[in-house]
Design a protein around this nucleic acid. Structure first.
Length: 126
DNA sequence: GTTGTGACATCGC
DNA sequence: CGCGATGCCACAA
């Protein structure tokens, strides 16, 4: 019986995602894909499958994140807030941290993302 | 056991 | 640059 195994790996994966998210400085945003690239390959998962779906799994992990995780700092690769209930609050929280949105609701990832200005670059994660 | 759907990224038009 | 299709996993109904 290996019913327990996938669940435990899932938990490990989520914990890893949350640990990274907790290290995102205020006023910065990371994309799901960027977080996904920092994750280690779970045991027993084929590499190409992992590559194909890890970003989605990050989204799933964020959907179940603990209260101490700054979930609002994780957005999609287009620099936009993925639509869902709570998206408005996410934008409000980010704006309160100094993140600005353009007229189409997009964040400048060059400015606020992982690649942002060197002087305010986020610390290396993991 | 099946089906539908998702807090994504990427590639083509 | 924007919009649509695709990938073919995990989980909830």
């Amino acid at each position: 019986m290996r019913i327990q195994l996938p669940y435990l790996q899932r938990m490990q994966f989520n914990q890893q995602v949350w640990a990274i998210a907790r290290q995102i400085p205020p006023g910065r945003v990371f994309t799901y894909g960027e977080i996904a690239q920092l994750l280690s390959l779970p045991e027993g998962i084929p590499f190409d499958q992992f590559i194909a779906f890890r970003a989605r799994w990050v989204g799933s992990a964020m959907a179940a994140c603990p209260a101490d995780v700054p979930w609002q700092r994780v957005i999609n690769a287009q620099g936009m807030i993925s639509q869902r209930p709570g998206a408005e609050e996410q934008r409000r929280l980010l704006e309160a941290e100094g993140v600005t949105f353009n007229e189409r609701g997009r964040v400048d990832l060059k400015k606020y993302g992982w690649e942002g200005p060197a002087e305010s670059a986020p610390p290396r994660l993991i």
